[in-house]
Write a protein that binds this DNA or RNA. Structure first.
Length: 420
RNA sequence: GUGAGCGUAGCUCAAUUGGUCAGAGCACUGGACUGUGGCUCCAGGGGUUGAGGGUUCGAUUCCCUUCGCUCACCCCA
């Protein structure tokens, strides 16, 4: 048996309903905030991700699906969407539009990681990006949008919103040096992983969950924002407060992508297990320029669809109720089938959902099937009916039956469909 | 990349110390009920017990290898 590749999953019809709900909610909320959809390719030149995400990140160093095409060019299945979206923004000159330019996109991402609960090799994200403006109100608005998206899904459990400011090119490098120095001085009291990361990605050390590292990390110097960054962050928080959006400042929140500056934020759900981040994002001023575009700032986030779907309450199958066919057409024999085939087509052309048997099974089995389909009506046409030019219309709920002339059957079904 | 747990029918799971152990329920198909569903009863199809090797008179059970799944580390959505 050929099985699906490790870490990828089929979304079966039962679950697909939930996905559709998530996507519909996203479109509704994102568009209310003025965002427009952009659809992007799932692979790009490898260089785009190497530069856009950062050579030193885990994603670029060990998680990318990279391959050569037949022309020998190095391509990569996208591990995230922001780099692609910015590439398109630059390539098509979208920066000439009134700013901020607001875009959203959704689709599969690929990372070569060991699968576990909530973590897959092909996973799906919803992305929102606002480009060309660095006003703190935009940051607050983006976070509010994210919160409103989840509110729109009416999840059973509340999500935790955390925000932080990472500073910018003016204040972060100095802090980085100070932190490295501190960590080196205390390396004896840190785990091996932290010592390693001190050199590779020092800010991430603050995120270490290892309890033995806690004392050192808790005493670590905090980032001192430059006046501009401090003002910006204070404004973001103030605007959030104005909107009634609660967000917990967490100075340890360091995201895994190199490009973040100033505002970063993350939404987590405790019930998800180890992979509990449902959404995360931040500001990336300077990234567009780094990728060869204009010096436009930007901010955005990604939502993990699989993780959201996992949080979605089981909603009975009311959605399924709506998708039940109106009727099941039961021809008894091929002659009857020839009469019902065009009827089914005509009814379906009016977007009324009906299903059709093929005349080979016994009436009993076909009615059983009608029952399982949950249809309101069964339409029976056998020899008797044919000879009279009629069809039997059976109400599956009450078991009562009436006859309709074959000529009027199509209109009758359409009328019943409209009345539903 | 590291570690742990688990692989029996489409699904959920049984099978005493290794000894008719290859089963049940659900689902599916058919029959009881020549053309009338839901309930009930009966029957049937469907498994190389993940795969390969070993120990044994005998392995679903014990051992090794391998593959897969799951969870955790790591990382992140």
């Amino acid at each position: 048996m050929i099985q699906a590749v490790r870490g990828v999953h089929d979304i079966l019809p039962s679950a697909a309903q939930k996905w559709a709900r998530v996507e519909a909610t996203a479109r509704r909320v994102f568009e209310a905030y003025g965002y427009e959809e952009i659809r992007l390719p799932v692979f790009e030149r490898t260089e785009l991700f190497a530069r856009g995400i950062g050579e030193a990140t885990d994603i670029v160093q060990k998680e990318m699906y990279t391959f050569q095409d037949r022309a020998g060019e190095s391509l990569t299945l996208r591990p995230e969407a922001t780099a692609s979206l910015l590439r398109a923004y630059i390539e098509h000159g979208l920066h000439v539009h009134p700013k901020p330019v607001r875009l959203y996109t959704m689709g599969p991402m690929f990372r070569y990681e060991r699968p576990q609960a909530g973590r897959y090799r092909q996973f799906h994200q919803l992305n929102v990006e606002a480009l060309g403006d660095d006003h703190p109100a935009l940051d607050a608005e983006v976070i509010a949008l994210l919160v409103d998206f989840f509110r729109g899904l009416d999840l059973a459990t509340p999500l935790d919103v955390q925000i932080n400011s990472l500073g910018d090119a003016k204040c972060r490098p100095a802090y980085r040096e100070r932190l490295i120095e501190y960590l080196r001085r205390n390396s004896a009291r840190l785990c091996a992983e932290c010592r390693d990361r001190t050199e590779r990605n020092p800010l991430r050390v603050l995120d270490c969950k290892n309890p033995e590292c806690r004392p050192v990390l808790d005493a670590a110097p905090a980032l001192e924002l430059c006046p501009e960054c401090a003002t910006h962050f204070a404004s973001v928080r103030e605007y959030l407060k104005q909107m009634g959006v609660e967000a917990t400042p967490t100075h340890r929140l360091v995201r895994g992508l190199d490009y973040y500056v100033r505002t970063t934020f993350e939404l987590t759900a405790t019930e998800l297990g180890a992979q509990n981040a449902v959404a995360g994002g931040g500001r990336y001023d300077g990234l567009i320029e780094l990728l060869g575009g204009p010096p436009d700032p930007g901010i955005g986030f990604a939502i993990g669809i699989e993780r959201v779907v996992q949080l979605l309450p089981e909603r009975g199958d009311d959605a399924r109720e709506d998708r039940r066919p109106l009727a099941f057409l039961i021809p008894l024999g091929d002659e009857a089938l020839r009469h019902l085939l065009p009827v089914a087509r005509a009814v379906r052309s009016k977007a009324v959902r009906v299903e059709l048997g093929y005349g080979e099974r016994k009436l009993r089995s076909e009615l059983e099937r009608a029952n399982k389909l949950g249809v309101a009506w069964a339409v029976i046409v056998g020899e008797t009916e044919l000879s009279r030019g009629e069809a039997v219309l059976r109400d599956m709920k009450s078991g009562t039956q009436q006859t309709v002339s074959l000529g009027a059957l199509t209109d009758k079904l359409i009328a019943l469909g409209a009345a539903r």
